[in-house]
Design a binder for these strands. Structure first.
Length: 465
RNA sequence: GGCCUCGUGGCGGAAUGGUUACGCAGCGGACUGCAAAUCCGUGUAUCCCAGUUCGAUUCUGGGCGAGGCCUCCA
């Protein structure tokens, strides 16, 4: 199976060929854990989860290493920690905050049916590697210390700007950065900055008590867990510049390598109801908010209905459609045993993670199973769904969610359903229709059928949205 | 100002140098006391202009429109 991936580095769909097929390595920029994760944060988590699943399928579960970092030191975290834990020593305060938010994050994305990465390194546990990286950069003439800071010298790297496809001159022309007086070049970025021991977290270093720059964290964590060069680096498209560009600069210059990662993948942005999500517009949703109203699999399906590089417009309508689809899939699959994923699904995913096409294949498998009615077709449909992270619960549990959400009193509903069936059998249609309306009012949908053997009328019910 | 995406039916959303998926909604039919659910079937689209070509939605150029990045951001 040939996997093709759109590589930001080459601006083309490249054939994926791992450095070591026995150990395929992928790094994805994870969350900065200072608050609840929002639905935009969920996109890369879901997208790269699908890629992880595909790689495991193709190369074997034991042969893929997926690292997704946790940024647990950052100025936003510091500010929040000072606020939430006044009087607590800074390092302890940020740990308390990040421990809490990281736990929330994990709980949220678990509901999105994402697999746990092989390793989830924390920045604060990778400080030694960061200092070692800075040492290497200074020794190689790629960084310099100035006024308690250590800065990366972009001028020391001839092809800086390769990922963003931008030259230094172009960047300077449009730059809106304030230039600190101690910078040699306006585009130089910070690797290490001084901390006030009283109010800011910090660590001892050869350049004084301080903390790492954001970009450095990912270079250190990927190095520690995946090596100097690895296969895939992922993240949101907004990270291309400066974050990923700077990671590349740090890692390549420190290790003297031609590439940091061979394939750079970036997911598109998410909008909400046609507008950029922001707190001021009032369309800001955390994953937790949405999970209160929608099952995680609905969010997951709604997300995968768009190709990962396209912008996605997250709307209530799209969630409703996704829920309808999953209702049908759960109902139709009805806990059948699954086989492995269908070849067509794997092929769709192998073409730069074409999840919309993969979903179309799922519909095709469902309809084929409908027509064929055989276990084989059913098994492939179910197996493909499971492979993509759906059908994570029983059909009964899925239906129960709906009942719980609608506040259904099961005993009362069944009493009314029985009464209606009685009226109907007595051909008292006025009464049976009245009861049907009462039930509809409660959100209950009835399904009438005839028992094939006895010829008796039967009624089952469910909650539909 | 610089860099980069994108523009497909009512909506979402793939693909393709020639026959344009799939889902939702709509419509018709079966079933039903009538419905619903379910099943079967079905209409509708490639932003505009020019070029290349036997043929373009697809390639090239221009235009118009939408969005992103260049600053913390998934």
């Amino acid at each position: 199976m040939t996997i093709r991936l759109y590589n930001t580095l080459t601006r083309e769909k490249d054939v994926f060929s791992p450095i070591d097929a026995d150990n395929v390595r992928m790094y994805v920029c994870g969350p900065t854990v200072y608050d609840f994760a929002h639905i935009g944060n969920a996109r890369p988590v879901i997208v790269f989860d699908v890629l992880y699943r595909l790689l495991r399928h193709v190369y074997g579960e034991a042969h893929v290493t997926y690292a997704r970092n946790v940024t647990d030191v950052d100025d936003k975290i510091n500010d929040r920690a000072v606020n939430d834990f006044p009087g607590v020593e800074p390092l302890k305060a940020i740990r308390a905050l990040t421990e809490k938010t990281y736990t929330q994050f994990t709980a949220d994305i678990t509901e999105l049916r994402t697999l746990t990465p092989t390793v989830e390194p924390r920045a604060t546990e990778t400080i030694a590697e960061m200092i070692a990286l800075i040492d290497k950069l200074i020794a190689g003439g790629h960084a310099y210390a100035a006024e308690g800071h250590v800065l990366f010298a972009v001028g020391s790297m001839p092809d800086y700007g390769q990922l963003a496809n931008r030259s230094l001159d172009e960047m300077l022309a449009g730059a809106r950065v304030e230039v600190a007086p101690y910078k040699r070049d306006a585009m130089d970025f910070v690797l290490w900055k001084p901390s006030d021991p009283a109010t800011e977290p910090g660590w001892n270093s050869p350049w004084g008590y301080g903390r790492p720059g954001w970009h450095l964290e990912c270079s250190a964590m990927s190095w520690k867990h995946l090596g100097e060069t690895f296969d895939i680096h992922g993240g949101g498209i907004d990270l291309v510049f400066p974050h990923h560009e700077n990671e590349i600069a740090q890692s390549r210059c420190a290790h003297g390598t031609a590439v940091m990662a061979r394939y750079w993948l970036h997911n598109g942005f998410l909008q909400v109801e046609g507008e950029k999500m922001s707190k001021s517009l009032g369309n800001f949703f955390t994953i937790r908010d949405l999970l209160n109203d929608w099952p995680g699999e609905v969010l997951r399906l709604a997300m995968l209905r768009s190709h990962y590089r396209q912008p996605i417009d997250f709307t209530v309508k799209s969630l409703e459609e996704a829920r309808r689809t999953l209702d049908d899939w759960y109902w139709f699959a009805s806990d059948a045993k699954g086989s492995g994923p269908a070849k067509a699904v794997i092929e769709a995913l192998s073409d730069d993670l074409n999840t919309p096409k993969a979903i179309a294949e799922l519909h095709g498998l469902r309809n084929a199973a409908q027509k064929a009615g055989g276990d084989m077709a059913h098994a492939e449909f179910v197996g493909s769904l499971r492979f993509l992270g759906f059908l994570g619960e029983t059909a009964e549990a899925w239906a129960a969610r709906r009942k719980a959400a609608a506040g259904i009193n099961t005993a009362e509903v069944e009493r009314l359903v029985a009464l209606r069936l009685q009226a109907r059998n007595a051909r008292n249609f006025a009464e049976s229709d009245r009861l049907r309306d009462v039930l509809a009012e409660m959100g209950v949908t009835l399904k009438d059928a005839k028992d094939a053997r006895t010829g008796r009328l039967t009624t089952s019910w469910e909650v539909k949205g």
